[in-house]
Write a protein that binds this DNA or RNA. Sequence first.
DNA 1: AAAAAACTTGACGATTTTTTCACGGCCTTG
DNA 2: CAAGGCCGTGAAAAAATCGTCAAGTTTTTT
Lengths: 231, 231
Amino acid sequence: MASRQTILIIEDEKNIGNYIETIVISNQYKALRAKNGMEGLSLCTSHHPDLILLDLGLPDVDGMDVLKRIRSFSHVPVIIISARTQEREKVEALDQGADDYITKPFGSEELLARIRTAMRHSVQLSNLMTQEQKYSKAGLEIDFDKRLVTLEGKEIHLTQIEYKLVSLLAKNAGKVLTYDFILKEIWGPFADTDNQILRVNMANIRRKLEKNPAEPFYIFTEIGVGYRMKE
Amino acid sequence: MASRQTILIIEDEKNIGNYIETIVISNQYKALRAKNGMEGLSLCTSHHPDLILLDLGLPDVDGMDVLKRIRSFSHVPVIIISARTQEREKVEALDQGADDYITKPFGSEELLARIRTAMRHSVQLSNLMTQEQKYSKAGLEIDFDKRLVTLEGKEIHLTQIEYKLVSLLAKNAGKVLTYDFILKEIWGPFADTDNQILRVNMANIRRKLEKNPAEPFYIFTEIGVGYRMKE
DNA sequence: AAAAAACTTGACGATTTTTTCACGGCCTTG
DNA sequence: CAAGGCCGTGAAAAAATCGTCAAGTTTTTT
């Protein structure tokens, strides 16, 4: 299923960093470590973490600056971790776009609960943000958002595997996808399937989509290589 | 800017309530007061506040129950205010859908900053949601505001879960919602439910809504994937 | 405290989907 | 032109999924 979510920990003190990393990892998240602000920023841009834990007391740049810079290009949820309990700091951080502010010392469970809360917010957002994407070509339309395939306006029923296949091809329209690639993509990397099963599924799909399955219009066979969908 | 935003304060101790109300009002919010859980719930349903400040230590109902009941029908941001610093409480409240947890004593500025943060989240959400007030299709009408379902004008009684299911589907009419998504949405992210329970509920719903449950008109099954409601 | 309603769980047949198997056509190659 | 590889197709076998009923448990109402 979906791969584990990544959390970027920006923290200069090794002990605390390790402590947090342990908590995070033992709860099925992937952890990324940065020991200063610059490193944190670059890891953020390169790895696109799902959440950031940011210590305000960093050696190089001010933690608040890091927050501002992150917010200038990303909406990733940020939880501030700080030893400072001064109200002014909290207010400033929250108003700069931090999603939460937690003061040391804190318990592991509380940290995890606040991580879950922040993730929840961001999932709700991203669920709604995803603008609809479609494949559309000469009467055939695939609405990936609705998981709906229509041909000349008429709804076409595809089974799970058929739909996965068509979407995979449509999302790579114009490109040849090799048998191996497709098999791994649909049946997973460990399945021991040969491409006989692919042939059967393609035949079924063509029967549903193509006017004349013998002379395909949408999905072409590249003999010995794979399949390609019309761009 | 539209009219001022309303904050519902559910707090039994008069002094603290007054303190909070003062803070809130002096910052251009409208304040609503409830001195116990039941009153809070009814004010919540009648006034649709933009945010709720909920004290956990209430005299009548358990504050956690109030939170659960609110979450059963609304996504309004809830900030828990509590004297109890026990981690278990915080974790439970956050996992029940609270958006933040702040411990007494707290400064006015921090409270306000956390209110702004919670509002920010909810504004982002509601901007995107642009929710329809009603679903209406061929005799079936769902009034989300009134929580009322009518078929050919006749009122249909749906249980809590049934209603949540139908409105979730209706709000995403046309889209296929996967079993996992639905389960997480209705039973929460931690429930260990398989979709057997979904099947039963769908059968019950169809018995109430569909003329011929064997050939559904409103709610379709996408085998292996999920359900979809007629757009 | 009893009764009713709502919710959950397990089992089973019917249907759909997925996989496997067998065969025939087409193209390339020797 | 015969052989061999590759692909499409039809049909049958195997597996998975779905709707439904019935029984058990919990919650809410009376």
